[in-house]
């Protein structure tokens, strides 16, 4: 052995030294060297992604650790959610949660909100029902009457059955006596192209999608209890004003930030502080105004957000049940 043995021993010693030297200074949260990952369960460039990224930019300013966004899309929003649930509850992995989490959980695709703790609420993006300007229906009343006269003849498209537009369109259809032919499309872009091309009659959109095609689309009704915050869309009537007082539809997508249950309280508190500061920052507030994103009734953090989620679940349950979506 001789020389070779000495060489091996020396190497082992050196390794041990570096282990010791590099291994100290652990145990504080956040470890500044670790990255905090915010999992967005949709692909980059989508509605959830564009709403989350600006707040992350602000969060970076208040965080010691590096923060990055990771898009893990697939199977509604359940793939990204399941990924967060499979990683250790150490506060380094956050989830862009919201109404999509609620509907994915109810469909039994993930343990979702049952295994999540709230960190901070963000905002609502209300949905708008729109048709091509060249279509004969000029108001929601016209449309519904026509649909009831010819059940199944008018197609109502959504951006995918698993997501919030899917649930909203199903809920609407149930409320109108199943008069529409509800058809899912492959995401918002596909739906828009099909409505613009006249292949699908009615579509359910977010505000920014309507804005991008104002010259071709005629917005009929906003599925929210108040008017749009955008000047261009202020005139769109709410469901109440359109003459459907008793209609209860989850008419928008809500976004928030959550972590896995069991995350240390100290970490959660610090994260909540960061999200709160980022949410209230000038930059994010003006971003919300510009995009017409509406704040929830109050700013919720930690257990307050859990409570708000319970409210949402309560509102979704009857609809999901009626639609045959609920899996228990």
């Amino acid at each position: 052995m001789g020389k070779r043995g000495v060489l091996v021993c020396g190497l082992v010693l050196l390794v041990a030294f570096f282990t010791f030297a590099a291994g100290q200074d652990e145990g504080v949260w956040p470890d500044p060297e670790k990255t905090i990952t915010i999992v967005v369960p949709y692909s980059a460039g989508g509605g959830t992604d564009t709403a989350i990224r600006p707040v992350v930019e602000e969060m970076k300013k208040y965080s010691e650790a590096i923060i990055i966004v990771s898009n893990i899309s697939g199977a509604g929003s359940s793939k990204g959610t399941n990924e967060v649930l499979s990683l250790p509850a150490d506060g380094y992995t956050l989830l862009a949660s919201g109404t999509h989490t609620v509907s994915a959980t109810m469909q039994g695709l993930t343990d979702g909100y049952k295994q999540l703790d709230g960190i901070g609420s963000l905002n609502w993006d209300p949905f708008i029902i729109a048709v091509l300007k060249s279509q004969p229906w000029k108001s929601m009343k016209d449309l519904v009457e026509d649909a009831k006269k010819n059940p199944g003849k008018i197609s109502l498209g959504n951006a995918g059955m698993g997501g919030a537009t899917g649930v909203a369109s199903v809920a609407m259809n149930l409320a109108f006596g199943k008069a529409f032919n509800v058809t899912p499309f492959q995401g918002g872009q596909d739906l828009r192209a099909n409505v613009l091309g006249g292949h699908c009659d009615v579509g359910i959109f977010s505000q920014s999608e309507i804005l991008a095609n104002q010259d071709m689309l005629n917005p009929l009704v906003i599925l929210y209890h108040e008017h749009s915050a955008l000047d261009e869309l202020k005139h769109v009537p709410t469901l109440n004003e359109a003459g459907f007082e008793n209609l209860k539809v989850p008419g928008g997508s809500f976004k928030s930030i959550s972590v896995r249950k069991g995350t240390p309280e100290a970490a959660k508190k610090q994260l909540a502080e960061i999200v709160k500061k980022a949410y209230h920052s000038q930059a994010y507030q003006s971003f919300m105004k510009e995009k017409g994103l509406l704040p929830p009734p109050d700013y919720y953090e930690l257990t307050e957000l859990d409570g708000y989620f319970d409210e949402l679940v309560g509102a979704f349950t009857p609809i999901m049940k009626a639609a045959g979506l609920l899996k228990e």
């Binding site: 899309s73 697939g74 199977a75 509604g76 359940s78 793939k79 399941n82 469909q107 695709l109 993930t110 995918g160 059955m161 698993g162 899912p184 492959q186």
Partner: peptide, 23 residues
């Protein structure tokens, strides 16, 4: 998963549900 109904479309779906295979 089925693109329309979100039902898991896999052989032995009871075992593979909630794994990365679902996407």
């Amino acid at each position: 998963t089925d693109p329309f109904s979100n039902a898991v479309r896999l052989p032995f779906r009871e075992i593979f549900a909630k794994t990365p295979l679902t996407s």
